[in-house]
């Protein structure tokens, strides 16, 4: 279970707080959506969970499986089961996708006290997962994300997620820059990961992703606070009325 309590976060070198007291619980087996206008703090929340430098937690706590994440390094959080799907996945020239995934997977296995995969085991696993997402072999041999289209990068994020076997998946604007076909592929990949042992937090500006990844709950984030929580129908309301009604509440 993900438990966020009274979380306040500011960005280092900036005086103002971006998150002004977030309280949120995502039980195992559930998918929650965070929706909100630009600048509401959605990505800040994602980075705070993943432990990015420069996102300073000034109050409250983030707990996963009963354990606070705050003192952990980003790689330790990954080992604890946290995965962040990036809004803008980075291009890493000179590092083959396959090599990167293998290093990441084995680093996690080592930290989790599991046995590292042999080369044939790894190849078998990655080929099966890649096939599900329509990722071709030559893409795996190319440097990570280099020259990939927006859709390819997001599919690669989902491939990484399914390879690394996290239990808390935070997807930051996974739908941005994608056409409907790409959204469908990414959503199917994500839905395959839904299960009684996993919590998911899907961050999005638009409702349309939630047609494909149907959430158990929707939280509206505005001005650094959660201003409304509801069922999946809340997303549809927002699609009609927009975020204007919440602008006042947040101020």
């Amino acid at each position: 279970m993900l438990e966020i309590r009274d979380l306040t976060v500011r960005i280092a070198d900036e005086d103002k707080e971006i998150l002004k007291g977030i309280t949120l619980t995502v039980p195992k087996g559930e998918v929650h959506a965070i929706m909100g206008p630009n600048g509401s703090g959605k990505s800040t929340l994602a980075y705070a969970i993943a432990g990015r430098d420069g996102y300073e937690v000034t109050g409250g706590d983030i707990r996963w499986d009963g354990q606070s994440l705050l003192e952990m390094e980003p790689d330790e959080r990954a080992a604890a089961g946290v995965f962040l799907g990036f809004q803008y996945p980075l291009e890493i020239p000179g590092v083959a996708t396959m090599t990167f995934l293998r290093s990441a997977l084995n680093a996690l296995k080592k930290k989790r006290g599991q046995v590292e995969l042999t080369t044939p085991e790894f190849l078998k696993l990655i080929r099966a997962k890649a096939a599900e997402l329509g990722i071709k072999d030559d893409m795996l041999k190319r440097p990570l994300n280099v020259g990939f289209s927006g859709g390819e990068k997001k599919r690669m994020e989902v491939l990484q997620m399914s390879m690394l076997d996290p239990h808390l998946c935070v997807l930051d604007e996974t739908d941005s820059g994608l056409d409907i076909d790409a959204i469908r592929i990414v959503a199917e990949g994500t839905n395959r990961m839904r299960g009684p042992d996993r919590s998911m937090l899907v961050i999005t500006h638009y409702q349309r992703l939630l047609d494909y990844i149907v959430p158990d709950k929707v939280h509206v984030l505005s001005g650094g606070r959660i201003v409304k929580t509801g069922g999946k129908e809340l997303a549809l309301e927002l699609e009609k009325s927009g975020y204007a009604e919440f602008a006042g509440k947040a101020a």
């Binding site: 993943a50 432990g51 990015r52 430098d53 390094e73 980003p74 790689d75 959080r77 990954a78 080992a79 995965f83 962040l84 990036f86 996945p89 980075l90 890493i92 590092v95 990167f100 290093s103 990441a104 997977l105 680093a107 996690l108 930290k111 990484q160 690394l164």
Partner: peptide, 18 residues
């Protein structure tokens, strides 16, 4: 880039080397 690699479980020293 460092954060991206570390968020995937790669320790700091290895991420730097990579």
């Amino acid at each position: 880039m460092l954060f991206y690699l570390r968020s995937r479980g790669i320790p700091l020293a290895d991420a730097r080397a990579m």
